[in-house]
Amino acid sequence: MKETKIKTKNLTLFYGAKMALNSISVDIPENEVTAFIGPSGCGKSTFLRTLNRMNDLIPGVKITGEVLVDSLNIYDKQIDVVNLRKKIGMVFQKSNPFAKSIFENVAYGPRINGITDRKKLEEIVERSLKNAFIWEEVKDRLHDSAMGLSGGQQQRMCIARTLAVEPEIILMDEPASALDPISTAKIEELIFELKKNYTIVIVTHNMQQAARVSDLTAFFYLGELIEFGKTKKIFTSPDKKQTEDYITGRFG
């Protein structure tokens, strides 16, 4: 087992009076792909969003427990949430390019980090797009609007945009759910490459996808973590009956 990158301890989250996560404790290892699966509303996306404090933006959210990234509690008052998010990138369900050129989209993160040197920016943009497997498709139209890309290309560009900030962890919230099978395959291939350098946590509705891309799988149900373990084991001989029922398609 590799070293733990993210560790949660009794993480509980309320939306107003409704409990959305009930005392979740997991160890997410470095440079592996960890998948969160479970039926809609089970809390898997909510849990993912606690890992880079994206839920801070939603009014009425109350969180107790701890999230440790590199052994530091990210909910500690000392933590600068802006720096935290530079370290923990996020790719969303719906590709969300800015209404800017491809170049400006990818350069957005470096620019807010104060990089203004044109050469340096060009370097980062090229490297990020290459690492996201989209360089060849867009290298001749870097200054065209990103809105003109196909859905799958937009999503890979959004991954490139995340890579440009040089995070250590990448959170992916159903990154392929809106894409066709070919685009999905490209994203999965990309995830496989990225895990060499990044710790990846992915939420997915698609169980085959979880089985294909992940090393570890966590099964959530009604805000509880039911089972967490090696993907192979979860998909072949889960310990819990609920997990088995879900994976074999008996509910959800």
Binding site: L57, V82, R85, K86, G89, F92, N96, F98, Y108
Partner: peptide, 13 residues
Amino acid sequence: RELREASLALGAT
């Protein structure tokens, strides 16, 4: 909201 979140997730204030 997605655009705001994308920006914040990239470490923008």
